[in-house]
């Protein structure tokens, strides 16, 4: 049997011994405690002992006038992290029925880094910033709510009107949306 011990590169390495805390757990601790969020985003933990399931609330109010289409709303997303994080991305869903080109009526979100472009070097901060960006710059080219995307392409003014209507808890084209306006 090879004598690995004598071949170890340095003694310092030999002194390293890690705790039983799983890599996923440490990574989530690191991601959460180093979150660098603007005041427009807050996290809420239904059970503070459970770091793997929480809610993100986004209240978009930043940006120039044209970016302020979702201003005044409070949008909630659930985050569910599995034990294979960060190999697997967090699972994110919008908890309200909202009128948005990239969010469907079931709360699915079309954000590339949540699926096809996820990499373990990304973190929870990247995902949250990405989500907020969707409210500043809805993307008509990746539609999940086709009607909203078509409206955005056709008439920005009509789209803005529909957004306001939906955020008040009204209907757009016969579809009821949740009231997300905060006073």
């Amino acid at each position: 049997m090879i004598k690995i011990w004598s071949m170890k590169k340095n003694e310092e390495a030999a002194a390293k011994k890690k705790p039983k805390t799983s890599a996923a757990q440490i990574r989530v601790q690191k991601d959460l405690t180093e979150l660098d969020l603007p005041s427009t985003m807050t996290t809420t933990f239904p059970d503070p002992a459970d770091l793997l399931n929480f809610t993100l609330t986004i209240t978009p109010d930043e940006g120039t006038y044209i970016h302020r289409m979702y201003e005044g709303g409070s949008f909630k997303f659930s985050f569910a992290i599995n034990t294979n994080y960060p190999h697997d991305p967090p699972r994110v869903k919008c908890l309200q029925t909202i009128y948005h080109p990239n969010v469907d009526l079931e709360g699915n979100v079309c954000l590339n880094i949540l699926r096809e472009d996820w990499k373990p070097v990304l973190n929870l901060n990247s995902v949250m910033v990405g989500l907020q960006y969707l409210f500043l710059e809805p993307n008509a080219d990746d539609p999940l709510n086709k009607e909203a995307a078509e409206e955005l392409r056709r008439s920005r003014d009509q789209f803005l009107y529909n957004v306001k209507q939906s955020m008040r808890g009204g209907q757009v084209k016969g579809q009821q949306y949740d009231k997300v306006l905060v006073q």
């Binding site: 690995i4 996820w118 990746d142 539609p143």
Partner: peptide, 27 residues
Amino acid sequence: PTATSCYECSLDMLNKPTAFPICTIAN
């Protein structure tokens, strides 16, 4: 273990499973 690169060290080298953009799937 502890002397050479471990499995976790190379986690970001893995081929990730093919995922399709959710909007492609939807539309």
